[in-house]
Amino acid sequence: MRIGVLALQGAFEEHINMLKELNVDAFEIRQKKDLEQEMDGLILPGGESTTMYKLLNDLHMFDLIKEKIEHGLAVFGTCAGLLLLAKKVNNHSTSYIQTMNIVAKKNAFGRQLGSFRTTGSFDSLMDVPFVFIRAPYIESVGEDVTVLATVEGLIVAAKEKNQLVTAFHPELTKDLTIHKYFIDMIKENLE
């Protein structure tokens, strides 16, 4: 199995390290030619969504990434990656790739002083560590979207067909649960 990690900006190395721990072949996507490689899954990491969106456009990667996701490539967006995939970002002037039927709110817990960590249940899994850094949350979800995790009633993880998003950062913990979950999703997707 090969998973590409968008490496334009942000915490992509942390995702790659987790994938390596799971014995998955992971590679960085910095340019269009990297994106053209064969892959079974794609991770959009945390970082700054405006920076990544700008670079996706400037480096002529935007249309291809959108097309791949629309054609069923399994994708996992964390934090900024969630914003990139959301159909709408409510408190922000631009929307990005817009392949996932969710409405998100940027910096929804406030500035850095609002960053926090907690544990919660994720789908049927218990006590999964959640790290939120200037994080968004999901305000509402469309029909085919399954809510996977909430924190104080706010939606912080969801899934729609080949797309998985978390407002938190599993790559900043030592817990491999969510990455394993994504790999299982890819396996189902490949069948």
């Binding site: 490496a7 334009l8 900006q9 942000g10 915490a11 992509f12 190395e13 942390e14 945390g46 970082g47 700054e48 920076t51 934090c79 900024a80 850095q112 960053s115 926090f116 960590r117 790290v131 850094i133 200037r134 950062h169 900043l172």
Partner: peptide, 17 residues
């Protein structure tokens, strides 16, 4: 300690930028 970890992690989000 938890706050310090979160602060280091914000810097991790800025990497490559």
């Amino acid at each position: 300690n938890e706050r310090y970890e979160l602060n280091k992690e914000l810097a991790q989000m800025l990497k490559g930028g």
